[in-house]
Structure formats: structure tokens, C-alpha cells
């Protein structure tokens, strides 16, 4: 164990951990939203995310941007980023909606047992992933340079890049926006009503299927934003990169308390940090394993996750 390494690199590990955590957090929201309303783990959510990565890169490709392009001007980069975020969010959102309509709703109508949903989830995940694989010839796709990797803030041995700041700020901002939507708007109240009592919500005139569609859409939108952050951070995407990341994001959701919106945020950042500190201590090969050990330990003491309450019970 490399304690001096961990202490020496504590600053940099914290910064990269928070940036990674921002991706986990937004990604995890999709699991948590769907679980909160349906008590269902949407395993196809990792493919919803991967669709976002390709949607963004293909959109940029239309403008002749690839990994060999020169850095666009600041104004251009902002425009491309906003466009990439918008397209990725919409494509991921619609993919999530499609999964709900094709894989889950027909089963709900027939009162299928939970296991059936698990199988169609895995099925939907496989079909989307393999389709992307075939269409992209199983090749990775690189990201054009968008944001300068030069650090904008540094103290000691800690450098912070503009991208890292953007990721964390964007994750927090979207979280605030989502909390407001679920906590303060009429539609958000409908979501909470279905989560807390599906029959009760129907008796209030809430169209349950419409709420469920909305929830899938929202989770997809968030995953699309996470997807853009991911390609900018990692540098490429591939049809099969969703799985491992999806497991991490799901872990983050459980860690924070699945069904709880703020829990996804807390779990995401915590998992990002803990994974990084673990790599500092034991070596990067242990990055993912450390996260799971922490998960098990936390669940032993807090079986419902850190923030515990489900969307069903939470006020916002």
C-alpha cells in the first residue's frame, strides 16, 4: 500500500475523482428515477448512455470534426459543445423512451413477473449494443479537441482543467434543475405520486404510463449529458464501453440510496473519489474493485444507501 503516494497525490486524485463522479452522478439518475417509480432496474440504461456518446461524436463529425481536427475557436467550441449536448441528450432520451415502450410497457400490460423485466432489460441492452457495434464496425470513435486540456487553476501539484470545472458545475446545475422539476412542478408531483402510491396516483387522475415515459425520458436526457462529458474526458467511445461504466453508475445509485435523486449525486461523487483514492493507495488496477468494497461496507451499515429514502418517500 502506497500511503505516501496517496497523500502526495491527494489533490489531483480529488479533482479527477470529482470529475469522474459527475459522470457517475448524471448516469446514476436514470437508474434511480426508473427504480423510484417502477421498482425496476433498467439494465439497458448503459446503452442509453452509449447512444449519447455516438450521437454527440457523429454530430460533430457532420462538421468535419474528428480526433485529428485542430482545436476550434472558443466561440466555435461553445457552439459545438451546446449542440453536442443537445443532440446527445435528445438521442439518449428518445432511446430510453423507446426501451420503455418496446421492452417494458407490453410486459406491464400483461402483469409480467419481475424476472421477465430483467430478461427484456438484458435483451434490450444487448440488441442496442450489438447494433451500434455492427454499424460502427466494432471500432472506437475518437473525440475532436474541444476544450483545451491546459489547467486553468493550479495550486501545489493540483491542476484543474476547464473541462473538469465544467463537468462538476454542469452536474450540480442539472441536479438542481431536476430537483426543482420533481419537487415543484405539477408533472414532478405526478412522478412522486406514482412513486409513492401508483393506485393513489391513478385515483387522482394521473396517467401512469405518461409519468413512466417522462421518467425514462428524464433519465435519458441526463445520461446524454453524461455521455458528452465522458467522451471529452476519456477521448473516445466504443459500442461496448457502456457496460462497465453502467455498473459503476448503478453502484453509485445504490450507494447514495436508489430511488433518491440526491443520493445519485452523493453516490456518484463518492464513488468517483473513493475509486481514485483506492487507485492511489493500491494502484490503478484496483480502481473499480475499491468502489465495490466500499459499497459493501456502506451497505452493511446502511442497507438502503447513504441517503436511504426512496423517491417514493422523499419530499423532493
Amino acid at each position: 500500500m502506497n500511503f505516501s503516494g496517496l497523500i502526495h497525490d491527494f489533490g489531483p486524485l480529488t479533482v479527477t475523482g470529482l470529475a469522474q463522479g459527475a459522470i457517475y452522478a448524471l448516469f446514476a439518475l436514470g437508474y434511480t428515477l426508473v427504480y423510484g417509480v417502477l421498482r425496476l432496474i433498467n439494465f439497458a440504461h448503459s446503452e442509453v448512455f452509449i447512444m449519447g456518446t455516438f450521437a454527440c461524436l457523429i454530430t460533430w463529425g457532420f462538421f468535419g470534426l474528428d480526433q485529428n481536427s485542430a482545436q476550434p475557436s472558443v466561440g466555435g467550441a461553445i457552439g459545438y459543445l451546446l449542440l453536442g449536448l443537445a443532440v446527445a441528450a435528445v438521442v439518449s432520451g428518445l432511446t430510453a423512451l423507446l426501451v420503455e415502450l418496446v421492452a417494458y410497457r407490453p410486459l406491464r400490460r400483461r402483469n409480467a413477473p419481475p424476472l421477465a423485466f430483467l430478461i427484456t432489460a438484458i435483451g434490450a441492452s444487448t440488441v442496442i449494443s450489438e447494433t451500434i457495434g455492427v454499424l460502427t464496425h466494432h471500432n472506437p470513435r475518437g473525440v475532436p479537441p474541444m476544450i483545451s486540456t491546459k489547467p486553468v487553476v493550479h495550486f501545489g501539484n493540483t491542476d484543474i482543467t476547464g473541462l473538469q470545472i465544467l463537468m462538476v458545475v454542469l452536474a450540480l446545475a442539472l441536479m438542481v434543475l431536476l430537483e426543482w422539476f420533481v419537487g415543484r412542478t405539477r408533472l414532478g408531483r405526478g412522478i412522486r405520486a406514482v412513486a409513492q402510491s401508483p393506485d393513489g396516483a391513478a385515483l387522482m387522475g394521473v396517467n401512469k404510463n405518461r409519468v413512466i415515459s417522462l421518467v425514462f425520458l428524464l433519465g435519458g436526457l441526463m445520461a446524454g449529458v453524461a455521455a458528452v462529458m465522458y467522451v471529452l474526458k476519456i477521448g473516445d467511445t466504443r459500442y461496448d464501453q457502456g457496460f462497465t461504466l453502467g455498473i459503476q453508475a448503478f453502484t453509485a445509485a445504490v450507494l447514495g440510496g436508489i430511488g433518491n435523486l440526491r443520493g445519485a449525486l452523493v453516490g456518484g461523487f463518492l464513488l468517483g473519489l473513493v475509486g481514485n483514492y483506492g487507485s492511489g493507495l493500491f494502484g490503478t488496477a484496483w480502481h473499480d474493485a475499491v468502489g465495490f468494497v466500499i459499497l459493501v461496507v456502506i451497505l452493511m451499515f446502511r442497507p438502503t444507501g447513504l441517503l436511504g429514502e426512496a423517491l417514493g418517500k422523499a419530499r423532493a
Binding site: R186, R189, Q196, L203, M204, G205, K313, R315
Partner: peptide, 26 residues
Amino acid sequence: ISQAPEGRGIFPGMTVQENLDMGAYT
């Protein structure tokens, strides 16, 4: 048609005000 269900069936995580707002959802 409006039903006050058996076992009350209110929304436990919502405030009284929000529960009443839900009643006027439509």
C-alpha cells in the same frame, strides 16, 4: 368520479398541501 381509498392511500412523502394539490391534478 373520485375515490378516497381504503386504508386512506394518501401520499406519505408529500405535504398536506401537496396531497390536496394532487386531488386537483386534472
